[in-house]
């Protein structure tokens, strides 16, 4: 990488960090590109040469975070113990723990995925193949171990789990953003138990 590329990467890093903090502390709608540039110590122009819009900045902030999270998962998943349901509970608990560190950022990400006029450079919430694959893998192993009915459409189960997972954040939204991760995990555990009751071989 040349000096220019180094500089560009450094600017990008600074912008993403500043945006992450402002979106979470001040709010996504309330944060302007100008404010992000100011906090990052770069010019407004250089933000726009890196990102097409605020929505794209948010998308990259989240992507950056998810890379960290899934690196953590790569280390943890092989060591998860217990039944299929237990493993799923652990996976979701880790997600809640991670996202509640900056819950307003996460809520803004979900909200913006429903906003019209999303740029093509934006990966909206809910289109994360990593989580989907991880859940499918756990369920497939459950089938191999005879805990989960073989004829079940696993993607359908995954969709149901993901819907419950995402909508539990409504509890955090309703509480104005301050809700311990454990409260959401506790509800999720119960929801997983209900669904697990249905996937048992009979």
């Amino acid at each position: 990488m040349g000096v220019r590329d180094d500089q560009k990467a450094a600017t990008r890093e600074k912008v993403l960090e500043a945006a992450r903090d402002l979106f979470n502390d001040v709010g996504y709608d309330e944060t302007t590109i100008r404010a992000i540039a100011e906090r990052a110590g770069v010019s407004v122009g250089s933000v726009f040469t890196t990102f097409a819009s605020k929505a794209e900045v948010l998308s990259h902030v989240m992507n950056h975070r998810l890379t960290e999270l899934y690196a953590e998962f790569d280390r943890v998943v092989p060591f998860l113990r217990g039944s299929t349901a237990d493993r799923l509970c652990s996976i979701f608990a880790i997600h809640y723990e991670f996202e509640t560190r900056r819950v307003k950022l996460f809520l803004a990400h979900v909200a913006s995925s429903y906003n019209p006029n999303n740029d093509p450079g934006v990966t909206p919430y809910g289109r994360n193949p990593r989580l989907n694959q991880m859940l499918l893998d756990v369920l497939a192993e459950g089938v191999r171990k005879g805990e989960v009915r073989a004829e079940l459409d696993l993607q359908l189960v995954v969709d149901t789990l993901k819907a419950a997972y995402a909508w539990n954040y409504r509890m955090a939204a309703a509480a104005g953003g301050t809700l311990p991760a454990a409260e959401m995990s506790a509800v999720m555990d119960k929801q997983i138990a209900v669904i697990a009751e249905g996937w048992k071989p009979r």
């Binding site: 809520l107 979900v110 909200a111 995925s113 429903y114 906003n115 019209p116 939204a173």
Partner: peptide, 19 residues
């Protein structure tokens, strides 16, 4: 659908009174 999208988007970040 556009109105529904707007209403779901708002529901994630609205005030406690609106909630």
């Amino acid at each position: 659908l556009p109105l529904l999208r707007a209403s779901i988007a708002v529901s994630w970040t609205r005030s406690e009174a609106a909630e």
